[in-house]
């Protein structure tokens, strides 16, 4: 057995948005608090605080996970992507971000970063998802404004854009 911490203090190292990072933190620090309060990445939004709504979704090794319900120590050695990590260095939006903007797939915007990361993971697993698959995935996160229709259309738009890019390459 490994005692990871006897006093509640712990050092962690992980990959954040493609860059290696390390932090001294505590065993009770959640990933959302680490990202927002210690690393100033405010794009991760916290709402329900109990896994359900998905507003705080980040990608951990490519799959969305509620950062509010993940301890920081759990991402040791893993890769974390936040909404800040999606756009290119020159500011070009990721195809999913661009599709959400084009379709206005948000109103208040609070759920949007989680929705975009969820959609990113969906399109990594299903390059051309049908509407039923999109609905099943998108129902993981809660949006109280849009009624979801515009989000579904944005995911379809992003899938088309990404498929077109791949074909062009």
């Amino acid at each position: 057995m490994t005692t990871l911490s006897e006093n509640g203090k712990i050092d962690i190292a992980f990959t954040l948005n493609g860059q290696p990072v390390s932090r001294a933190t505590t065993t009770s620090r959640t990933l959302s608090d680490l990202l927002r309060d210690d690393m100033d990445l405010k794009g991760t939004r916290v709402a329900c605080g109990r896994t359900v709504c998905g507003a705080c979704s980040v990608l951990v090794d490519g799959f969305p996970r509620a950062a509010c319900s993940t301890f920081a120590f759990e991402v040791e050695g893993r890769s974390v992507t936040t909404i800040e990590g999606l756009e290119a260095e020159d500011g070009t939006l990721d195809p999913v971000q661009a599709a959400f903007a084009k379709k206005s797939a948000f109103q208040c915007g609070y759920c949007t970063s989680g929705m975009i990361l969820l959609a990113r993971a969906l399109l990594a697993e299903h390059q051309r998802p049908d509407r039923e698959t999109i609905r099943e995935w998108i129902s993981s996160n809660i949006c109280r404004c849009t009624g979801y229709q515009l989000i579904i259309e944005a995911v379809e738009e992003a899938a088309e854009t990404m498929a077109g890019k791949e074909a062009a390459e």
Binding site: M1, T2, T3, R29
Partner: peptide, 8 residues
């Protein structure tokens, strides 16, 4: 939740 000992 205060920082607590962690065992693996």
């Amino acid at each position: 939740l205060p920082p607590v000992p962690l065992y693996r």
